[in-house]
Measured scan of single mutants.
Amino acid sequence: TFEVERIVRKKIVHGNTSYLVKWKNYSSKDNTWETEDDIRTKYGDLVDDFEK
């Protein structure tokens, strides 16, 4: 199971928000862009903290 360590960046393309996710126990080269809906479902607190 993958676990988010932190959110690195945010991008908005054509009105759709995605977050660059750093995965726990993986290197930064393994970071992936994930949709806001996918990340918010399980890691809403991390998204809220990133947006502060």
Rank of each mutant, 00 (worst) to 15 (best):
K42G: 07
R40A: 06
W23R: 01
N25A: 07
N16S: 12
D48K: 09
E51V: 04
K52P: 03
T1R: 13
Y19F: 06
V47E: 02
F2D: 12
N25T: 08
K10A: 04
K52S: 10
T32W: 00
R6Y: 15
D37F: 12
E5G: 03
D45T: 11
N25I: 06
N16M: 15
Y26W: 13
N16T: 14
K42H: 10
G15Q: 03
W23I: 01
Y43S: 04
D38H: 12
T35D: 12
K24F: 07
F2A: 14
K22E: 06
T1N: 14
F50E: 02
E36T: 03
K29T: 13
I39W: 01
V21A: 00
K52F: 08
D38S: 11
V4S: 01
E3N: 05
G15R: 03
N25Y: 09
E3M: 08
L20I: 00
D37A: 15
V4E: 02
K11N: 04
D49V: 10
K11W: 04
N16A: 12
V8R: 01
N16C: 13
K10E: 01
V8A: 01
Y19D: 00
K22D: 01
R6P: 03
H14I: 04
G15M: 03
E5H: 04
N25E: 09
F2L: 14
E51P: 02
V47P: 01
Y19A: 00
Y19W: 02
I39D: 01
D49R: 10
Y19K: 00
I7N: 00
E36Y: 09
V8Q: 04
K24W: 07
V13N: 08
T1P: 14
D45G: 10
V13S: 10
V47R: 04
N31D: 07
K52A: 11
E3Y: 08
D37N: 11
L46N: 02
N31K: 06
F2V: 11
T32N: 02
Y43T: 03
G15A: 04
K42N: 11
Y19L: 01
V4H: 00
I7L: 07
I7W: 03
D45C: 08
D45N: 13
V13G: 03
S28C: 15
G15S: 04
D38Q: 10
K10D: 01
I39N: 03
S28R: 05
K29Y: 10
E51N: 08
N25D: 11
S18E: 10
G15T: 03
W23S: 00
F2P: 15
F50D: 00
V4Y: 03
Y26D: 09
V13C: 11
D45M: 10
E5R: 02
S18G: 02
F50V: 01
N16R: 13
K11S: 07
T17V: 15
Y43F: 12
